[in-house]
C-alpha cells in the first residue's frame, strides 16, 4: 500500500560483504590452487592415515594420508567449473526455449510449457541416467545431464521476463521498423534480459554446484583421483563409520558455504540488476 516502511526482509549489508568475500576466496583458490595448496592433492602418505588436524596438516589427512586442505583447495576448480559449465549449457537451452515461447505465444508456448512441465516433473537424476546410458559416465555427461534438468527452470524464468520485455513499446517500434522475429529476439530482446537473468543465474549457481556434487558423490561424474568436493565426500564415507568424520564433513562444509554465499550474493545482485519498469 502507500509507502510506509523500507522493504522488509532485506538482508544486512555486512552479510553480503562476507559472502562476496567467501566467493572471491573460493575463486582465488580455484585459480591459484597449485601455488596456495601446501601439498600435492594426490600425494598419498601411508604413514599418516586419518590424521587429526595438526600444524603439519591443518585439516588433517584422509584414508590415503592425503592432505585434506590441499584437496579442498584443488577441488574448488573442478567443482566451480562443473557448475559453470552446467549453467552455461542450461542457460543457452533455457533462454532459447523461454524466448521462443514468449515470442510465439499460442500453441508453441503451450507445447513448450508442457515439455518443460514434463522435464520439471522428472528428477534431474533421471536425465543423468539417460545421458550416461548413451555417453558413458564422466564429468561431461554429468554436466549435460544436469543441464537438461536445469534448462526448464531457466526457460520458465526467461519466458516470464521476456513476456514483460516484449510488451514494452520499443519492441513494437522495432517491429514497425521491419525487424524480423529472430533478429528482434536475439539481437535486441535477449541482451536486455541479461542483467535480470544474471542475478538469477548466480542464485541457481549454488543449486548447480550442489546437484553436481551429489552426482559425483554417486560416482556418475568426476572420477578419482579428482578432488572434486562431492567425490571427496564419497571417498571419505568409509571413514565415517570408523569415527573419522572430518574428511567427509570438510568438503561437505565447503559445498554448503559456497551454496549459501552464492545465494546471498545472487539475491542481492538480482535486486540491483533486475530492470523494473
Amino acid at each position: 500500500m502507500t509507502v510506509l516502511l523500507r522493504p522488509a526482509g532485506t538482508r544486512p549489508a555486512w552479510l553480503y560483504r562476507i559472502c562476496a568475500g567467501i566467493l572471491v576466496i573460493t575463486v582465488a583458490a580455484a585459480v591459484f590452487a597449485p601455488i596456495v595448496a601446501p601439498y600435492e592433492p594426490s600425494a598419498a602418505d601411508f604413514a599418516a592415515l586419518w590424521q587429526p588436524p595438526s600444524l603439519e596438516h591443518w585439516l588433517g589427512t584422509d584414508h590415503l594420508g592425503r592432505d585434506i586442505l590441499s584437496r579442498v583447495i584443488h577441488g574448488a576448480q573442478p567443482s566451480l567449473l562443473g557448475a559453470i559449465a552446467l549453467l552455461a549449457f542450461a542457460t543457452v537451452l533455457g533462454v532459447l526455449i523461454g524466448v521462443v515461447a514468449a515470442w510465439k505465444r499460442g500453441w508453441v508456448d503451450t507445447v513448450l510449457a508442457r515439455i518443460t512441465d514434463v522435464m520439471f516433473a522428472f528428477p534431474g537424476l533421471l536425465f543423468v541416467v539417460l545421458v550416461i546410458a548413451v555417453f558413458g559416465r564422466g564429468p561431461a555427461t554429468a554436466v549435460i545431464g544436469m543441464g537438461l534438468a536445469f534448462a526448464p527452470v531457466i526457460a520458465k524464468f526467461t519466458r516470464a521476463v521476456a513476456l514483460e520485455e516484449l510488451a514494452r513499446p520499443y519492441v513494437d517500434a522495432y517491429r514497425l521498423q521491419g525487424v524480423g522475429g529472430v533478429e528482434l529476439c536475439l539481437r535486441y530482446v535477449v541482451p536486455n534480459l541479461l542483467p535480470t537473468l544474471a542475478g538469477y543465474l548466480v542464485v541457481l549457481f549454488g543449486d548447480g554446484l550442489m546437484s553436481l556434487a551429489a552426482l559425483n558423490f554417486l560416482g556418475f561424474g568426476a572420477q578419482p583421483p579428482s578432488s572434486e568436493w562431492g567425490l571427496m565426500v564419497e571417498e571419505s564415507r568409509a571413514g565415517v563409520i570408523q569415527g573419522y568424520l572430518a574428511p567427509a564433513i570438510i568438503p561437505g562444509l565447503a559445498i554448503a558455504i559456497v551454496v549459501v554465499a552464492t545465494n546471498v550474493v545472487g539475491v542481492r545482485l538480482s535486486d540491483k540488476l533486475a530492470v523494473r519498469p
Binding site: R168, P169, Y170, L176, Q177, G178, N192, V275, P277
Partner: peptide
C-alpha cells in the same frame, strides 16, 4: 520476408506514449 517488411516500415511509423519504454535502453 525482409524486403516486404522494410517496405511496410516505410509506409507507416509510430511513436508511443511512454517515453521511458519506447527506446531500447541499451
Amino acid at each position: 520476408g525482409r524486403a516486404a517488411r522494410l517496405r511496410r516500415a516505410r509506409e507507416i511509423q509510430m511513436v508511443f506514449q511512454d517515453p521511458y519504454g519506447s527506446l531500447d535502453r541499451r
